[in-house]
């Protein structure tokens, strides 16, 4: 299985049972995960983005046991952020980047975001966009961030047809027709970490083709078992299950590898 949504280092607001990389990797392995795309919790609040990305790449190499794939962070509100994109691609040889517009404070109709997508297309980087990290109701009182408003994406993607976009943690806010429209607007996939409701994946499949759904756990902030059990709660059959847990994600990274 490929998990497209894990994070390393420290969640800023509490220690997590699996926030030491070897423990996380051991748990992923026990669950049958063979590859996991890792961002860094440090990306949320740190401004030394290259420091964050360098540690992330190093951690994946030394403690990843061949399983962790680093996706660096880019914060387009910082001066010279384009250099971080270049380094993710050329220095760290990353296959993608992970964005946190909620914590970094920009909207998706900002010109910087369009420029970022253009650069990502040029370097054939997958762009993961984290819509939120936690339920807005439980956030720390001094750090209240709003979920990313994804409504500008349909227009932005019209101008960036070659972008490969993965929305993480999207289902609390991107629902119904808006979700369907977004899936139709371009090469956009969605992880299942925040999908709720009984038979949640079955419900998602009524709104987007299963080829656009990816196994993502949001571990270690969420219990890994949540995403695993969702595969059991929905009646998927072996073909669709394999697509969601392996093939869709590997197709994404193959089409983007240089």
């Amino acid at each position: 299985m490929i998990d497209v949504n894990v994070s390393l280092s420290r969640w800023p607001f509490r220690r997590l049972p699996d926030d030491e990389t070897p423990r996380l990797v051991a748990r992923l392995k026990r669950a049958g995960v063979t590859q996991a795309i890792a961002g860094s919790f440090d990306a949320l609040l740190h401004k030394d983005v290259e420091g964050v990305n360098r540690r992330l790449a190093q951690e994946c190499r030394t403690h990843g046991d061949g399983l962790l794939v680093p996706f660096g962070c880019v914060n387009p509100t910082l001066p010279d952020w384009q250099e971080d994109v270049r380094r993710c691609h050329e220095v760290h040889r990353m296959r993608g980047i992970r964005l946190h517009p909620d914590y970094h404070g920009y909207t998706l109709d900002a010109p910087e975001f369009a420029e970022l997508l253009t650069l990502a297309i040029k370097h054939q980087l997958i762009v993961q966009l984290s819509v939120m990290m936690e339920d807005e109701r439980t956030q720390h009182p001094l750090v209240q961030v709003q979920a990313v408003d994804t409504s500008p994406l349909v227009d932005v993607l019209a101008d960036h047809a070659d972008a490969t976009l993965v929305l993480l943690n999207s289902q609390r806010t991107v629902r119904g027709e808006a979700l369907t429209r977004l899936a139709e607007a371009g090469n956009v996939s969605f992880d299942i970490a925040m999908q709720e409701s009984v038979g949640g994946i079955e419900k998602l499949m009524k709104l987007v083709p299963h080829k656009r759904l990816l196994f993502g756990s949001h571990a270690p902030l969420f219990y890994l078992e949540s995403a695993l059990l969702k595969l059991q709660e929905s009646d998927l059959g072996e073909t669709i299950r394999r697509a969601i847990t392996v093939e869709n994600a590997s197709r994404l990274s193959n089409s983007n590898s240089t």
Binding site: S197, G199, G200, S226
Partner: peptide
């Protein structure tokens, strides 16, 4: 808290805990 929630996410708090 089904049907708004899934059994999966809520069982995970127990089955996934140390």
């Amino acid at each position: 808290d089904i049907g708004g929630r899934s059994f999966a996410s809520q069982l995970a708090k127990v089955t996934g805990a140390d």
